[in-house]
Write a protein that binds this DNA or RNA. Sequence first.
RNA 1: GCGCCCUUAGCUCAGUUGGUAGAGCAGCUCAUUUACACUGAGAAGGUCGGGGGUUCAAGUCCCUCAGGGCGCACCA
Length: 736
Amino acid sequence: MEPKKPPSQQPYPPANIPAKFLKPYDPASTEDGIYKAWIDSGYFNPDNLPARHKEPFSIVLPPPNVTGILHMGSAFMIAIEDIMVRYKRMRGFKTLWIPGTDHAAIATQSKVEGDIYKKEGKRRQDLGREELVRRIEAFAKESHDSIVNQIRKVGASVDWSREAYTLDEKRSLAVRTVFKMMNDEGLIYRGYRVVNWDPKGQTTISDDEIVYTEGKGKLYTFKYSKDFPISIATTRPETKVGDTGVAVHPDDPRYQQYIGKEFDIEFAGEKIHIKVVGDNEVNPEFGTGAVGVTPAHSHVDYEISQRHGLPIVPVINEYAKMSVTGPMLAGKKTTDARETVVAWLKDQGLLEKEEEIPQNMSTAERTGGIVEPLPKLQWFVNVNKKIPSRGNRSLKELMLDAVTKDGIKIIPENFERVYMHWISNLRDWCISRQIWFGHRVPVWYRTDASGKDELYCGVTPPSGEGWTQDEDTLDTWFSSGLWTFSTLGWPEETADFKTFHPTAVLETGYDILPFWVARMILMSQYVLGTVPFKTVYFHGIVRDEKGRKISKSLGNNIDPVDMAMKYGADAVRMGLIVGTGPGSDSKISENKIKGYKNFANKIWNITRFVLSSTEGVSLDRGFTEWSADDAKIMSNFSALLVEVTKEMDEFKYHIVAEKLYGYVWREFADVILEASKKVLAEGSDADKISRKQLLLHILEKSLRALHPFAPFVTEEIWKDMPIADKKPLIIEEWPR
RNA sequence: GCGCCCUUAGCUCAGUUGGUAGAGCAGCUCAUUUACACUGAGAAGGUCGGGGGUUCAAGUCCCUCAGGGCGCACCA
């Protein structure tokens, strides 16, 4: 591009203007080089920071799942965290931001299984455990590499030398160590209980991994047999062959007389034995006021059965098929069995009523399979057991105390109540999964010579012959719950662990509060007796410009890396940050990002003007000879810096970004620069000297203040600033 | 059922100790070899969802109603 000649007689461009400023700012040709320079400088690693960086400030990157690629939400998260870290680094903290990835057990395995089935028509059993895990690891590796590139692209100043993976050796050791601790203290138990079974993924899942979808169901009212005195209602007639009791309210006058009576019945070709029990949980107002109790296939019924000693009779298997033996139902899918049972009821004249009711369907978050409650032998974490070594408090209480007594601050505040509400509903946590990708349960079994069963739980396998390890793997959140300290080398007493734990801030999406945030608190409170972090900062969901969730099926994904290539990472970051406070959802559009590309270019052009107006002058940090106008401008600007510094400390990044944007463009460029043209042409020598220093000072401080938000363009300009004692901008001081 | 959030200019949203309503984008009028068209200047645009209360003063605090979003639980 041909440099344009201004109307003045001055040669243009002045000799001191580096050629790069004669073209518009081009992020694509700049950013990768800048990132590499940061890496080479070593400043992402706190050990390499200059001596002024003393007080530690640490955060962990919520590890992305190795299931694919990053989306706008991850870019948003990285942008916020990078702002925190760069700000604190400039403020002189010894900053550590640890990156890593999450193996995301079920999510990753079901993704790879799906791909293999599509391409080769093979299922996991066809491949075997070893081969499947090998394939998943290969996929995870590839996915990891592209995620790392994406994190770099957004400009994250993470310390790559400390990168961690939930399934690597150190983190696995931490997992086994904690499992043993909990097991030895009786917090982990193995029990035969009704769990959430995902027939599609062929594994149990936790309560939090269930997604409820609204649908319609039919409520059938009927009697087991002509002789049975009580009518019951159900939406799942096929499970009734597993009934072992009927529960009524103990005070219900209609049924009181039957409590304690037992009946043998032939139902849909199966022999069932029913005992009538009185239970306070039964609502006499609902349906007939009597509940057919199916202990094996309902969480609530299981609990009733435990209170009254009713036997558990499973009638559905892991493939959601009937496991009974009678000719009418044996081997049928539950849905077919339902029709069969209903037809049989009608035929026998037992069906009294059939009505449509709204009904939620439970589906597995990752596979979409319809969740079937099944009784299974599984591993659980007891959240209610009092722990002597922790002041006789239960895990639940430890989790509550973290926020109410131990000072974890949640931003925005209202999520404190959400957290409390979640904990109050918490049940024992089922941690075993019947999948192959993940941390194998560190328990071994054998039967000794005398025929006695032995069980061994340990960090390393037991010595001796004949041991076999538990087949199951652990819930992925068990390992990510340890993230704040496993990443710092725990259980080893590392210097990192001593310096950087508890971490300062945990920044993450509010949608994983129960999954992850609560579990990190649980683990750290229990294992270390400290909080895992002092502050929790929640961001919201990034939506498309119409406010819809970004999803594959809508095809409304905006890829952050594409956007960064097109408009620059700085523009993507600014576009995500401005106007989005903590906890609130945001809308992103290409147009918004484009607007901030213009901003980067504006700073670029401001620099061109300032440099060409101050030829031969260097920034004088001790300059005091301000003209009256300039003194005023400097003092206004200082006031702004005081203001935004306070807001940075209050996590109001969206406000700061907007204010700096407004000042630089609407005040510095539109007003101050314009007025400078006159001063520099017609002012006194003293005024000119003052004004040149003013331009340099404001530009210099603006670059410093903007650096956390737009690190690339500011660092690129910084290289050419006429400042004698310059350090790389990344470790310069925050302006004041 | 329990709980959380939102409702401010056409659109997207700021507005945290209560003190004369803000920004960006879009639209309108104008400028144009300018540091920058990835531009500038200007004007226009709001009974801050409705109602009530506290107060000298309410977008902001309290109550209530309406609409929208979401989480958890229940779902015989």
